[in-house]
Design a binder for these strands. Structure first.
Lengths: 183, 183
DNA sequence: GCTCACATGTAATAAGTTACATGATTTC
DNA sequence: GAAATCATGTAACTTATTACATGTGAGC
């Protein structure tokens, strides 16, 4: 159902293709909704077409593959607004990074530091991507959503920057203990 | 793989049962890793036992159902630390709430306000649950992880509190426009 | 008497991922 | 000449969810 809502969410703002949908789901704002692969997007678009929620036309640009451009219908618009109001799912945050933090004392110090660096970089990149999107954003609701993401991730990043040494100390301490035990 | 890592993550800190694992996955810290159902936990524990990563003993308390208590083995401990170091997955945040925010202008104002209230409540409850866990937490890595979650969610909550009126205004404006168009 | 908490498990189903299949054009 | 980008799609597989199946004891 996530892929479906994501596709409709993009389609209400304008026509698009399966290929573009996949790209959108990988960076920027739409990351908050899904990270879809072709294997979920193409079947989903076909289903939406069968249901009459979108129409499809083929665009042939010479020297390029045929593009199937999808456009939402009035029925599709109505269905989307309906589906948005369906029983709510809670927001979920899944963090392989916090799993590492939780077991910091059992991880090699260099490994842990590398992963903390990687997490900081990831956050910085995502914040920058959203900030760029915000700077060219004209729709107030999109701006709101972008700002929400930027501020939340900024808080997450700041916490890591301010407190990473604590975590790294845990890893060092126990790695020292392991070395001494081996002697 | 999430269920597996979650089970091992709990088991390295002490023995537990399938029933307890499901409860842990639904509130507190472990929500960052999974939200597992019996249908994934029980098969997972059986598999871990077959692989020799955990052992199982049956505890019979008179007048209570038999409990199958699982304990991690040395092999399990080693496997977990290995698996933690496997190629990283990015943290993911999936937000049905931000999907609503993005389409605020097409939603009825009362509906939107209700959902914003619900999201604020959800955040307050989760912040409180983590704070309580923090107040009785003795393991430094767990404390770190809890604080990280608390600060990030506090930032998310603050943003909503400070900016919800903007979103609600969008919904009101377009609902007024719809009424006028109908006249 | 009803509902909640304890406690384990399976089967059918849903949903999505990965790898495969194909192929032209542009950029290095 | 190699790699990346554009572009669509299917098949096999993995993973997890939902609903079902079963049963006791405690509190209201």
């Amino acid at each position: 159902m996530t892929t479906r809502k994501f596709c409709l969410s993009v389609l209400v703002k304008g026509e698009t293709t399966g290929y573009e949908l996949r790209k959108l789901s990988r960076d920027g704002l739409h990351r908050y909704f899904t990270d879809a692969s072709y294997g979920s997007i193409y079947p989903c678009l076909n289903k939406l077409e069968r249901e009459g929620l979108v129409t499809c036309r083929e665009e042939t640009t010479p020297g390029k593959p045929v593009r199937k451009v999808y456009t939402i219908t009035d029925k599709g618009r109505a269905a989307f607004v309906e589906e948005l109001q369906e029983p709510p799912f809670d927001d979920t945050y899944r963090s392989p990074f916090l799993m590492l933090a939780l077991h910091a004392a059992h991880l090699p110090p260099e490994f842990l530091s590398e992963r903390i660096d990687a997490r900081e970089d990831e956050l910085r990149q995502r914040i920058q991507a959203l900030s760029e999107e915000l700077s060219i954003c004209s729709n107030p609701a999109s701006c709101w959503t972008l700002r929400s993401g930027i501020e939340t991730m900024a808080a997450a990043l700041k916490f890591i920057e301010n407190n990473r040494s604590e975590l790294e100390a845990l890893s060092h301490a126990s790695s020292q203990a392991r070395v001494q035990a081996a002697e």
